[in-house]
Design a protein around this nucleic acid. Sequence first.
DNA 1: AAGACACGCAACCGCAAACAA
DNA 2: ATTGTTTGCGGTTGCGTGTCT
Length: 254
Amino acid sequence: MVRKPSHGDSIKEENKERKGLWSPEEDERLFTQITYHGVSTWSSVAQLAGLRRSGKSCRLRWMNYLRPDLKKEPISKREEEIIISLQRSLGNRWSTIAASMPGRTDNEIKNYWNSRIRKRLSAAAKAGGGGGSGASTEAAPPAAEEKVKPEPTNATTAAAAAPPADMPIPARFPVFSCQLLDGDVGGESTPSTTSSTQQNSGEESEASVADSNMIHFLSFDDLDYPADFLVDVPGAMDAWESELYPANSTSSLY
DNA sequence: AAGACACGCAACCGCAAACAA
DNA sequence: ATTGTTTGCGGTTGCGTGTCT
């Protein structure tokens, strides 16, 4: 569920810093800017993209929404198990938890925890009466067909195998990686918009769904590659755009 | 049908750490 | 060593949407 962009809601003056929801135009500017030029500093990204946004806001938008390697499907039961397990061992260190979960952001995990898991855990604690011992099983019964090993090491291994979830854009060192959606670069890319249609994604192998999205991962450490190289992949941008802003959908995501 | 309420999520805020000058 | 800037993080808020009454 995404709020309708209230364009210009907080604009008092032309050059006043903009706040509030991001419009599709702003997203496109930011995405294009980072795609072509990478990130030196976030404030410069905002400037160069012609955005009246703080660097901080740009970073947040990129990290939580525009990054190509983000998973779009809902958090699966398996992931929920991991979150619960890691939260128990690490506390509210959401960025650390997110680093163990490719394609998930700290904000997403934090929201998920605050809005669902925490509520359920406290309810379960009250109902069960007994401390936190049964909390995990009460809160998140594991999917029947898969035994979850919510070991941090396990998750970390997964993180190592896949492109890192937090995919850092090191400050002062332009790096950008581009995930081409749906493998089929050339043609009818049916962007794997599993989010809206696969409500039960958690019941299948979540990894397979995720991995199928990670077909190509282009990365470069400097700007030696011609800028065209990245975006001039037939279908890639279309796929991205249709995923981000589905034409038949009133909301942009989820 | 309409208002009240609850929920979920995007984004802001404040702070601390890291880094550069 | 000091100061200013930027980034990263966690907590919190605001608002759109869905559900209930």
